[in-house]
């Protein structure tokens, strides 16, 4: 690992002030960044430790929840309000990584974790447009079973690996950001960029901007939500496909619905067209299948991941059916 300076931020303002150039990176618990530094994918000259900034989980004036970016994944999943009012978020977090990693990993770090594309991680042996812009992408013709089918580009088919973010996308979460020019709020679904021909630009964050918290708006539908993750083994594996969904049925018709997908796209993927087509429909197989078709209509596959659209469609139908059944 290349030597670096280490400093612990005393406050959000202190953290932001310590970022002088692109060689400075914020450090959460390091569960992803330390590994990337060992592999030579990340070579920061300075780390600013932000793990001792706000980890509070507190109600907002609007009846929602504000989660400090330094809160551990475990703290969020075990929080009583999260379990009762945002169960898909608790389930998404619990389905990710291992207990040890969830105890360490922060909310801010989870959002900004990098893809687990093996070609991205292979500095010596593979080409990657995300790591080295313009170099080419060995995943396109390589082992791409785990790669994305929605929002991908000819330059990059890597997925965003987070489970937590899929639930946050479904729940209209808002990311609170502090920077040298003040504070701003960005919807979680707008934080990450699609790769296009610049896959090395992964978020809309400017140099030195720090994620300070995530806000969950108050919505009654979130209490009737769940998360399902499909993977190659029963535990401790990244998603091939995952679905976070919430469903509200009134007088035999779908009054409101949320659908977000993981494991299939470069960012937490909200399926808004599928949601729109379900409003007012009678909950059941035919409506759910039609919505799932719409959600995957734009899929572009490679030989290794050609199974993913069908797996995603079936998982969407299964999750919506479970939610409809549980509501009766």
């Amino acid at each position: 690992m290349t030597p670096f300076d280490y400093a612990r931020a005393r406050s959000e303002q202190d953290a932001v002030a310590r970022v002088k150039d692109a060689g400075t990176k914020y450090l959460g618990a390091g569960t992803n960044l330390v590994d990337l530094m060992r592999e030579g994918v990340e070579v920061p000259s300075r780390l600013v430790d932000v793990t001792r900034l706000s980890s509070r989980i507190e109600p907002t004036d609007g009846g929602g929840l504000l989660i400090g970016a330094a809160a551990s994944n475990t703290a969020v999943a075990e929080d009583a309000a999260v379990r009762a009012r945002y169960p898909a978020l608790a389930r998404a977090i619990l389905s990710g990584a291992s207990a040890q990693i969830r105890n360490m990993a922060t909310v801010g770090g989870n959002i900004l974790q990098r893809t687990r594309c093996t070609y991205f991680l292979d500095v010596e042996g593979a080409r990657c447009n995300k790591r080295q812009p313009g170099q080419g992408c060995d995943a396109l013709e390589g082992f791409n079973r785990g790669h994305g089918v929605l929002g991908v580009s000819p330059a990059c088919i890597a997925t965003h690996p987070s489970d937590m973010c899929v639930a946050l996308a479904a729940f209209d979460a808002v990311v609170h950001i502090a920077g040298a020019n003040g504070r701003r709020h960005v919807p979680l679904v707008d934080l990450h960029r699609l790769p296009g021909d610049t896959p090395h630009l992964e978020t809309v964050l400017e140099l030195g901007e720090l994620i300070t918290a995530v806000e969950l708006p108050s919505q009654t539908i979130t209490a009737r939500s769940t998360y399902r993750k499909v993977r190659d083994r029963a535990s401790y594996a990244f998603a091939l496909v995952s679905v976070a969904a919430a469903l509200e049925v009134a007088e035999g018709r779908i009054a409101d619905v949320r659908i977000a997908l993981g494991g299939v796209a470069p960012k937490p993927w909200r399926a808004r067209e599928a949601e729109a087509t379900l409003i007012g429909a009678v909950p059941g197989q035919s409506a759910f299948v039609a919505a799932a078709e719409l959600a995957l209509a734009g899929a572009r596959t490679r030989p290794g991941n050609a199974f993913k659209p069908e797996l995603a469609r079936r998982t969407i139908v299964a999750v919506l059916s479970d939610l409809a059944g549980a509501g009766q």
């Binding site: 280490y6 612990r8 450090l27 618990a29 390091g30 330390v34 040890q100 990693i101 105890n103 360490m104």
Partner: peptide
């Protein structure tokens, strides 16, 4: 009291 992975933990963070 909480389980973590010592390989991913930079010692300096646990002052």
């Amino acid at each position: 009291g909480e389980r973590v992975l010592a390989c991913l933990a930079l010692a300096a963070q646990y002052d």
